[in-house]
């Protein structure tokens, strides 16, 4: 059988419809659920899933930044304070030296 002929034959294969009674049963059940969901979703409008995911991700980012700030922020403050103390200590030391070596005394 030629490829084109095969294609035509395939498109002519039987296209049966599902059993009407079973199809009606499924439709009735699914439609009842569809209407029920529509009622519930209009009474309680929830954020769409994508929106919820974006919000969750944003909160996660905030938490990570805050965590870093807490962990390294304390450490940075400590280092700055230490440097300041060292500088002040040195300044006091030089001031004392200067006083000791003051020729006017």
């Amino acid at each position: 059988m030629e490829p084109d002929e095969l294609w035509k034959e395939l498109s002519r294969l039987p296209r049966p419809e599902p059993a009407p009674q079973r199809a009606a049963e499924i439709q009735q059940r699914a439609r009842a659920r569809f209407l029920d969901r529509a009622r519930t979703s209009s009474a309680d409008p929830r954020e769409p899933r994508a929106e919820r995911a974006r919000n969750a991700w944003a909160w996660f980012e905030v938490a990570v930044v805050a965590g870093f700030a807490l962990a390294y922020g304390g450490w940075t403050v400590q280092v700055v304070a230490q440097l300041r103390d060292e500088r002040l200590g040195r300044a006091e030391h030089f001031a004392a030296d200067a006083q000791r070596l003051d020729p006017a005394e």
Binding site: P18, A19, R22, I26, Q27, R29, A30, R31, R33, F34, R37, A38, S41, P48, R49
Partner: peptide, 18 residues
């Protein structure tokens, strides 16, 4: 096929609004 089809339509009923 009919069994699976019912599940397809129930899922559609759940998700059609979103």
């Amino acid at each position: 096929a009919e069994e699976l089809l019912q599940e397809v339509w129930l899922r559609f009923a759940d998700r059609a609004h979103t």
